[in-house]
Amino acid sequence: MDKWLKFLEINAPRIFDLTIEHAILVGAAILVALLIGVPLGIYLTTNDYLAETVLQIASVMLTIPSIALFGVMIPIFSIVNLGIGFVPAFVALVLYAQLPIIRNTYTAIRNVDPEMRDAAIGLGMKPIQRLFRVEIPNAFPVIMAGIRTAVVINIGIGVIAAYIGAGGLGVLITQGITRGDNYLIITGSVAVAILAMIADGFLMWIQKRYTPKSIAN
């Protein structure tokens, strides 16, 4: 136990810095993924043919092993001298976050009660008014569920980003493995788990706070 405390005392600032680094990497990736995924998901509800194709591509993306995808990023970004570090990791994480975000947005908007949509049109709402006043508010919990899934996936996959020099909590784990240092491995893993739980809890709070009372449950 003493050894643990000593380890944490020495490494606390570093663990904290790496956690922040991890959170920034994932946060930035999710933000960009949202800006792409939500509008795309909404657009796909108006184009069935494209919807199928896009959702399939996004599904395939999620099945690529993360280490392979990170590996692929290196030669691609080497062209612009960004082969390793933040940028390739960020791009890979944006790709991984797409499927849950696009799929949930698409499904949620599609599943808005057609009678409700009919009433909205019949009352004379413009498409954009219908979207913001009726469709998105009623689809919100399902869209949020997709975002939460994406965040948790990204925090996990973000660990692998350490291999291509993007930093984050993966650094503790990879160093621990190469040095055979269990303290490092366990600390890194626990920190990742805690980060994931905090992020998910926060998003759940947002989801509850902004879900219309009458459609909660």
């Binding site: 409700m116 009433a119 049109i121 019949g122 009352l123 004379g124 006043r133 009726v134 508010p137 219309p212």
Partner: peptide
Amino acid sequence: IELRRKIGYVIQSNGLFPNM
């Protein structure tokens, strides 16, 4: 759009918006 705003519309399932 103008036309629909000048015509009241009531449907069987009442079509009320649960978020409002």
